[in-house]
């Protein structure tokens, strides 16, 4: 099981702050993950519709969507950051 955490409008559109999910073995990259997540329901589809607006962090580190997610404890999905 992998802990998924969501932030900002991704969190609002999915309707959850976090959840535990089983990621299928054929989901290798960040892009694979987003494609698979979108099939989990309308809320995920709405939250993740614009792939290039979604950032992915694996165990607290940014990854590119083309990179492998590996087998992390925690994956975060969120929009571009607006701190500072």
């Amino acid at each position: 099981m992998t802990k998924m955490v969501y932030f900002a409008w991704v969190r609002e559109r999915i309707g959850l702050t976090e959840e535990e999910i089983d990621i299928p073995g054929n989901v290798k990259t960040g892009a694979d993950l987003l494609a698979w997540m979108k099939g989990r329901g309308h809320n995920y589809e709405a939250a993740l519709a614009f792939d290039n607006a979604i950032r992915i962090a694996v165990d607290h580190e940014h990854i590119d969507q083309k990179e492998d997610i590996g087998s992390p404890r925690e994956i975060a999905l969120f929009p571009p950051m607006t701190g500072g």
């Binding site: 900002a8 929009p79 950051m81 607006t82 701190g83």
Partner: peptide, 25 residues
Amino acid sequence: FLKTRAPFWKKEHRADGSVGEWVDA
């Protein structure tokens, strides 16, 4: 680098009492 890579997000609360938008990057 902090502005583009540190995981913070700003949401507006408007003076008229409404909840505004998430600030765009």
